[in-house]
Amino acid sequence: MTRLRHIGFLLFDDLTQLDFTGPLQVLNRIPGATVHLVARQQGPVRTDCGPFILADTDFANCPQLDLICVPGGWGIDQAMEDDATLDFLRRQAAGAQYVTSVCTGAFILGAAGLLDGVKATTHWRYHSALPRFGAIPVQARVVRDGSVFTGGGVTAGIDFALTIVREVFGEGLAQAIQLGLEYDPHPPVDCGSPTKASPAILDAVDSQFAPRWDAFLRVVDRLTG
């Protein structure tokens, strides 16, 4: 018996593939749970690295979800202004046990009005924009505020999902899933946070985000004034 019978991922074009597939690998191993890949229309959804994901249900036919997860990616700019996406998210959030995001997916939650007064995190490069949606920024890999869970950038989705499993089902299942996935990171370099990066590396990565950041802020300005 599970208290998370229906788990759904909100998909949109140009999502970050690992934002979605990281937590999917964890949450799909919950006994008795059904995972729904939800988009405006059934069929292929483009990721930011080439492959397509097949959405298996659309907004109209999605059952009430116990947990909804919103990944991030370059496509958030369009999703944040899509009324059908935001309406679906609001409807599902009203009946869900857990409303969650990974990386910049937090801003889709924000655009739907679901982060007002809520402690949250997101990718480090976008963290400063959280207050624009009424969120209270917290520098952490996973942040919980009531029924809302937010994960930091990309790989934090795995930690977020294991946090959910431990919350609902206890330490044993979380450990079993972690071991099954052999999630025991020992990266060959140690620069996974801006606090660990040299000024040169930080500047190089920041410059990669700069064009996308400007486009993102134009959307935020339209949404928040």
Results as ranks from 00 to 15, higher is better:
Phe149Ala: 05
Asp159Met: 09
Gly8Ala: 12
Ala161Val: 08
Ile158Met: 13
Pro63Ser: 09
Glu81Asp: 09
Ala39Leu: 06
Cys69Arg: 00
Ala60Trp: 00
Val143Leu: 07
Gly8Thr: 01
Ala200Leu: 14
Thr47Trp: 01
Ala200Trp: 01
Pro137Ile: 05
Cys191Ser: 12
Val219Phe: 06
Gly180Ala: 10
Phe133Val: 03
Ala135Phe: 04
Ser207Phe: 03
Phe160Cys: 02
Lys196Gly: 04
Gln178His: 01
Arg5His: 12
Arg141Ile: 02
Asp87Met: 06
Pro187Thr: 12
Gly146Pro: 02
Leu179Ala: 14
Ser193Gln: 09
Leu86Trp: 07
Phe216Cys: 06
Ile164Leu: 14
Gln208Asp: 13
Pro185Leu: 11
Ala112Gly: 06
Thr21Asn: 05
Gly8Phe: 01
Ile108Tyr: 03
Phe59Pro: 03
Phe216Gln: 04
Leu18Asp: 00
Val165Tyr: 01
Arg29Asn: 14
Ala129Gln: 13
Ala55Asp: 06
Thr34Trp: 02
Glu167Val: 06
Pro31Thr: 14
Gly151Glu: 03
Leu11Tyr: 06
Asp203Cys: 08
Pro51Lys: 06
Arg212Val: 11
Phe20Asn: 00
Tyr98Thr: 10
Ser101Glu: 08
Leu115Lys: 02
Gly43Asp: 09
Trp74Val: 14
Ala176His: 13
Gly152Lys: 03
Arg90Ala: 14
Gly75Asn: 03
Leu181Tyr: 06
Gln25Phe: 00
Ile76Pro: 01
Thr122His: 07
Ala93Met: 12
Gly151Cys: 01
Cys62Gln: 03
Leu109Ser: 04
Asp116Thr: 10
Leu37Ile: 12
Thr16Asp: 15
Leu67Phe: 04
Phe59Trp: 06
His127Tyr: 09
Val219Lys: 12
Gly157Ala: 08
Asp116Lys: 13
Glu81Ile: 05
Gly32Arg: 05
Trp124Leu: 07
Gln178Met: 08
Ala200Thr: 11
Phe209Gln: 04
Arg46Cys: 06
Leu15Val: 04
Thr2Cys: 11
Gly50Ser: 09
Val220Thr: 09
Phe107Gln: 07
Ala174Arg: 03
Ala140Asn: 11
Val220Met: 14
Asp19Lys: 08
Thr195Cys: 05
Val45Gln: 05
Gly73Thr: 03
Gly180Phe: 05
Val138Ile: 15
Pro44Trp: 09
Asp203Lys: 13
Tyr183Cys: 10
Gly43Glu: 08
Ala129Glu: 13
Asn61Glu: 09
